[in-house]
């Protein structure tokens, strides 16, 4: 008899409102590594999971937006700390998911963590870069403030299991949005791990909600959901037209992939930021 220990496997679950439920549908699907090995039965999110996630995101948005930008930055930075401490686990799963070498995976993880730090530093700069005062021709103090769009649905890059997730999710979140994320269908596990880390990073429940499952089934639900304010179609280039059409029903802001690299770009940040302009009279 060998004294080799049987490892304890993890069930990969959804992240909704700070909790980790299995899909309300009870469904799951098999996720394999790039090389075809069985990695686990990942929760197969349903329309109702999407609905619950949107409700959670909506409820959390006021609080997240109401937090100080300094506080949001600290929460994001805490995520980087969590990721750093679990970087080997992330790297292992990037290797499994993407089939890259262990060394390459370490580079991917390093970049992803550094990107989290980059976004952590943005939270209290956005208003200064994108807002300002406007010299109107009259006795008014007039200033423009960037404001989060609200609830953003993010369909993350299907290929980049970690890096794509970080950019697409943290750009809207650092600006004060809450998100419902459809993880990469075939490579969801790094995203699920990162979701677990958000739960220990002081994110209020509901700020980041992650659904794993079939993009073709869930993306249209998110695109059509009228209480979703913005839609990032990065992970659904082929269905972009159809999803954009659904999004038009409630005049959503839609970020469409157009071949240009959006990562770490102001365009990505601006995509789900509104400008609110306040006029106040000036007089004695």
């Amino acid at each position: 008899m060998s004294d080799r220990r049987l490892d304890v496997r993890k069930t990969y679950k959804l992240l909704i409102n700070g909790a980790f439920p299995r899909s309300e549908s009870g469904r799951s699907y098999e996720v394999a590594s790039a090389k075809g090995a069985f990695l686990g039965n990942v929760a197969l999110g349903s329309r109702k999971d999407v609905r619950d996630a949107v409700v959670a995101a909506r409820a959390a948005q006021t609080k997240w937006w109401g937090a100080t930008a300094y506080n949001r930055g600290q929460v994001l930075y805490r995520l980087a700390e969590m990721a750093e401490s679990r970087r080997d686990e992330l790297a292992e799963h990037v290797t499994l998911a993407e089939g890259v070498s262990a060394k390459s995976a370490q580079v991917v993880v390093s970049r992803a963590i550094d990107r989290v730090v980059w976004y952590a530093g943005w939270t209290d700069k956005i208003a200064q870069v994108m807002g300002g005062t406007n010299p109107v021709a009259g006795p008014f103090f007039n200033f423009s403030v960037p404001v989060a769009s609200g609830v953003v649905a993010v369909i993350v890059d299907q290929n980049s299991s970690l890096g794509g997730f970080v950019d697409a999710v943290l750009a809207p979140v650092c600006a004060g949005n809450t998100v419902v994320v459809l993880a990469s269908e075939r490579r969801p596990i790094p995203a699920v791990l990162l979701g677990e880390m958000t739960a220990t990073s002081d994110f209020p429940p509901g700020v980041i909600n992650i659904i794993t499952g079939r993009t073709s089934e869930l993306a249209p639900v998110l695109a059509a959901h009228e209480d979703v304010d913005g839609l990032d179609l990065t992970g659904a280039p082929e269905e972009a037209n159809e999803l954009a059409l659904l999004a038009a029903g409630s005049i959503k802001r839609v970020l469409r992939p157009d071949g240009r690299d959006l990562d770490a770009s102001l365009r990505r940040l601006r995509a789900f930021i509104e400008t609110s302009t306040v006029w106040h009279t000036i007089g004695q």
């Binding site: 406007n134 010299p135 109107v136 021709a137 009259g138 008014f140 007039n142 423009s144 509104e274 400008t275 609110s276 302009t277 306040v278 006029w279 106040h280 009279t281």
Partner: peptide, 16 residues
């Protein structure tokens, strides 16, 4: 997108 405090319906080319 626009909030007027103690005024209303003011417009200016510099104001988004």
């Amino acid at each position: 997108g626009v909030i007027w405090a103690n005024t209303y319906n003011r417009f200016d080319p510099t104001s988004p």
